[in-house]
Computed example of a mutant assay.
Amino acid sequence: MLTSERKALIQTVLLRDGRVVAKSLAQELGLSEDTIRRDLRELASEGLLQRVHGGALPASPAVADFARREESGSAAKLALARAAAALIRPGQIVFLDGGTTNVQLARHLPRDLSATIVTHSPSIAVELVQHPHLDVELIGGRLFKHSIVAVGAASAEAISRIRADVYVMGVTGLHPEAGATTGDSEEASIKRLIARQSAETIVLATEEKLGAASAYCIVPISEIASLVTQASVCDEKLAPLRAAGLEIVSA
């Protein structure tokens, strides 16, 4: 079997099964594990999968810059934002993560909602300037330009002094085994801290992020209460997440 044929087969298995186990695939093809692992390394370097211990998972496609992500999937993000807005209750302290879907959420919070919004996203803070009843606390720090959020020691210190009722988290991948993931280690660390300072974590994720993984783990599925995603997502894709304990909110 040619290298190109093996790589095509690996991607077919990923699409079909949601993961590749190097040992099993090597045995099935009568090849060495080293050959399969080399193929996995090369595919990972091309951004076509995410290597994990023993094999690989589908790579998250959510790697474009903020401006391009804001333009893509706008109808789905709007639906998720409206569904998530309905979950926020008066009087709560809510931490809104950065990301294009959460910007939409900020735009669609009810005008009569009285609550406190904490965010490390300047984009979200600006969206809430004209909201009549929301108190907004903006966390400072070093700007991570890809997501337009503050990160670093100053951010972590400020976040550690806050206890939020709800954290609305953005992710680049959500997988039943890999958990919630993102593509930057420092951003993952800040997201993890926010989740652990919050009573409840809600993830907003469009379909292409489900069953996918990025390089850095934020939290396992067990530390997430709810997932807000598109109503069009098939039950086959949602079943492993539901079995892991997630409440699914369809938008």
Rank of each mutant, 00 (worst) to 15 (best):
S4R: 09
S4Y: 07
Q11V: 07
L14W: 15
R16H: 04
R19M: 13
V20T: 08
V21G: 00
V21Y: 09
V21P: 05
L29E: 03
S32G: 06
D39V: 09
G47C: 07
L49H: 06
R51Y: 13
G54Y: 13
D65V: 11
D65W: 08
D65E: 13
R68M: 12
E70W: 09
E71D: 13
K77T: 10
L80D: 11
I88S: 02
T100G: 08
L105E: 01
L109N: 11
L113N: 08
I117C: 05
I117T: 07
S123R: 11
S123Y: 01
L128E: 00
P132K: 00
H133P: 00
D135P: 02
F144T: 12
K145S: 15
V149F: 04
A150V: 13
A153V: 15
S155A: 15
A156F: 03
E157A: 12
E157P: 00
A164Q: 07
A164H: 05
V166C: 08
Y167E: 03
M169T: 08
T172L: 02
T172Q: 10
G179R: 02
A180H: 00
A180C: 10
S185F: 15
S185E: 15
E186K: 01
E186I: 14
L193M: 10
A195Q: 01
T201G: 03
V203D: 07
L204E: 05
E207I: 06
K209V: 12
L210C: 00
G211K: 00
S226C: 15
T229L: 01
A231F: 05
S232P: 09
V233R: 05
L238P: 04
R242T: 11
